[in-house]
C-alpha cells in the first residue's frame, strides 16, 4: 500500500510475472519434477484434512508458487499436517507431499541465508 495524502493506492492485483522472483519455482521444478504435471483439478484441496478446517488451499499455494507469488506460501504451508491424502487422490501422480516438504525446505534455507 502506498500512502498518498491520506488516500491509499493498492498495489496492482495482477501477477507481475516479469518482476516476480522465480527461484522457488525453479527449485521445486527441479527437485519435484512431478509437480509440473498439475492440471489444477483441485482433488487435493477438496479432501485436504487441513483445508477442511482452514483456508489452506494446496492447489492455490503451488499454482501461485509457479508464478513466483511466494509471499504467503510460508504462512499457508505451516498449516499442512503432511497426512498425504492429497497425494492419494491426485490423478496426475504429483508427489504433493514431497512438494510441500521441499517448499518448506526452500523457505527455511532462504531464511537462513537472509538472516
Amino acid at each position: 500500500m502506498i500512502n498518498f495524502w491520506g488516500y491509499s493506492i493498492s498495489e496492482t492485483r495482477s501477477i507481475n510475472y516479469d518482476k516476480n522472483d522465480k527461484a522457488m519455482t525453479e527449485y521445486i521444478a527441479a527437485t519435484v519434477p512431478s509437480s509440473k504435471l498439475c492440471i489444477g483439478c483441485g482433488g487435493c484441496t477438496a479432501g485436504c484434512t487441513a483445508g477442511n478446517l482452514t483456508d489452506f488451499n494446496i492447489r492455490k499455494v503451488q499454482m501461485l508458487m509457479k508464478r513466483g507469488e511466494t509471499k504467503d506460501a510460508k504462512e499457508q504451508l505451516q498449516k499442512c499436517m503432511l497426512c498425504g491424502k492429497c497425494m492419494l487422490v491426485c490423478p496426475r501422480g504429483v508427489e504433493t507431499r514431497k512438494m510441500i516438504l521441499e517448499m518448506l525446505n526452500f523457505i527455511k534455507t532462504n531464511q537462513k541465508l537472509e538472516d
Partner: peptide
C-alpha cells in the same frame, strides 16, 4: 525437522466436539 513450530502452529484445530461412547472409532485420514 524442517517445520518451524510457533505458538499458533495448528491453532486452527477446533475444540473437540465428539459424542461420548464406550468405544471410540477413529477411521484415519486415509
Amino acid at each position: 525437522d524442517t517445520i518451524r513450530v510457533v505458538k499458533d502452529t495448528y491453532a486452527y484445530v477446533p475444540e473437540p466436539e465428539v459424542k461420548r461412547a464406550k468405544v471410540a472409532y477413529f477411521a484415519g485420514c486415509m
